[in-house]
Design a protein around this nucleic acid. Structure first.
Lengths: 248, 248
DNA sequence: CGCACAGTTGAGACTCATCAAACCACGTGG
DNA sequence: CCACGTGGTTTGATGAGTCTCAACTGTGCG
């Protein structure tokens, strides 16, 4: 539950980090795609890699943010606690998503960021943006694309997971979870029922009932508590049926 | 319902436009806050002011966008139509909000933008961003702040209007509508029941019932079909009661 | 005046929340 | 190793909230 805002960088990491940044570029993970070798050399020293266990928080709402974070692996949830103490999960961030960009603008964080699974992130310090503004204006376009991506994700979250009956919302959540799988046909992270309820605005009981029902229907198979295999053909077919039902 | 993507600028508007941009700056409407007089002179010629009647659309989803738009007055809704033909309103934009920024990045629009009331917008052409990148990198920070604002709005919309029972969602919508009023204590724009249902994910009947009920309770008074006076003290008190009920 | 369409209201069906109890997974200590 | 406690999950019974279908009313416009 600690917030490792500043992590002492192991000397041994300096070299691997340069390699990681280069890999990011190769894989079009985007932010530094336009950087040349020299600029990359200059920047990679400022970027730290951080590991979080499930439940650990990356930052908290209203903290004066010092960095944004790009997710390298795992799933991070962005959530808010309203005046009545209820949590609401705003959206999830997976590999190559960036969270906490508001820190780059000198603003405090707009939500809590908490690891759902084991997570690796790269820390992008606030002053990086200032340097980029000065030296590499072209990079700012990549930054802006990240903001736009976050906005697209938010809009999609709202239209997919905040609309329609509970069963359809659960099905769409499963579909979204499949996007976070490392490889196709691999087990996906299965959120706790309480997390589901905070994502889909329903009670834990309803989430539990629907997941159990979908297990019986053969849409998913659980392996342990926090992992499941999705049977994508069944899932997609069920989702289609669901959409037709309401249309008829 | 037309999309006035390119509007022939009346010669008589060139001078007033310069004045308008200057006013924007004075009122901290932000985007060009950092511009000096000369840069302002250079830019204002590229900015056109557009007027829309209620129901007219500013742009449509998937169009190859050529411009972003800053709302000068009135209310614009961002909405999507899903695969089943149902509309979902993502959020509202009012004075000083900017919509369609994805066009600045060469992307197509991510949603439809439709005027809810009579609307005045300023058109910011796509090439403006390129010029700013080249000549005034400091301005890009203002652009990024606009993206962040849109993201904050999206997050707030989700937590306020997509959570809890129907009555609370309607109350919070009324509260949000009060933010779009030109002056305090002025009549606000009252959405059609169908618009409310698309904003709050409920049926028109439920929206109608709740609005009628709130009229009887003295929370609002309608003037004609599309306008109402909100009695803020009653509204805020009702909202407080609502929050306590569920907590007890 | 009368048509078309938005808004309102009612009755019944269905979904989902609430409350309660049982079940299960996991870690702790005997 | 098992007993046990804790907290998450599942399931059931019941009621509140919301949707559906339908009728009626109000508003604006030709």
């Amino acid at each position: 539950m600690s917030a490792p805002e500043v992590i002492p960088l192991q000397p041994a990491f300096y070299n691997p980090q340069a390699r990681l940044c280069a890999e990011c570029r190769v894989r079009r993970f985007a932010l530094f795609g336009a950087l040349d070798e020299a600029a990359l050399e200059h920047i990679h020293g400022q970027i730290a890699e951080i590991r979080l266990a499930p439940g650990e928080s990356l930052y908290r709402m209203q903290q004066a943010g010092q960095a944004a974070y790009t997710v390298r692996s795992g799933v991070v949830r962005l959530e808010r606690t309203n005046e009545r103490g209820e949590r609401r999960i705003l959206r999830l961030a997976g590999r190559s998503d960036t969270v906490g960009m508001e820190a780059m603008l000198g603003q405090s964080y707009a939500a809590d960021a908490v690891a759902c699974t084991e997570v690796m992130v790269c820390r992008l310090p606030r002053h990086l943006l200032d340097e980029l503004t000065r030296d590499q204006p072209a990079l700012l376009r990549d930054m802006m694309k990240r903001w736009q991506r976050a906005l697209d994700d938010a809009d999609e979250w709202l239209t997919e997971l905040c609309t329609g009956p509970a069963r359809r919302r659960v099905l769409r959540l499963l579909l979204k979870l499949s996007e976070f799988a490392e490889h196709d046909e691999e087990p996906v992270w299965l959120p706790a029922r309480q997390e589901m309820s905070a994502m889909l605005d329903m009670t834990v009981e309803t989430a539990s009932r629907l997941i159990s029902q979908l297990k019986r229907e053969g849409v998913l198979t659980a392996h342990g508590q926090r992992s499941a295999t999705l049977h994508m053909d069944a899932l997609l077919q069920t989702l289609r049926d669901e959409n037709l039902d309401a249309g008829a």
